[in-house]
Amino acid sequence: MITLTHYLILTALLFAVGLVGVMRRTNLLMLFFSTEILLNAVNIGFVAVSHYYGDFTGQLFAFFIIAVAASEVAVGLGLLILWYKRNGSVDLNSLQMMKG
């Protein structure tokens, strides 16, 4: 029988995969992919909690997270294209102008 703990472990696993991506990638497009993984992992957790406690709030929260992800991609990709036109690279190291 699949319990809530199974789903939470899966959520934690996927979140860890996304965090590994955020930590080891330096390409900005790949960083966007990793943030999508993080958001999806959290969505699974919300829906699982919503199912096992019989409460619909979790599903609605996941719905709003999907809306936020969609607008994040629209704005982020626009900025990324602008940066690529200016610098010819979407690498994080090219964003380092102040050499801090």
């Binding site: 607008s71 629209a74 704005v75 990709l77 626009g78 294209i81």
Partner: peptide, 8 residues
């Protein structure tokens, strides 16, 4: 987000 994506 849509407007900013188009403009950017």
């Amino acid at each position: 987000a849509m407007i900013s994506g188009i403009v950017l």
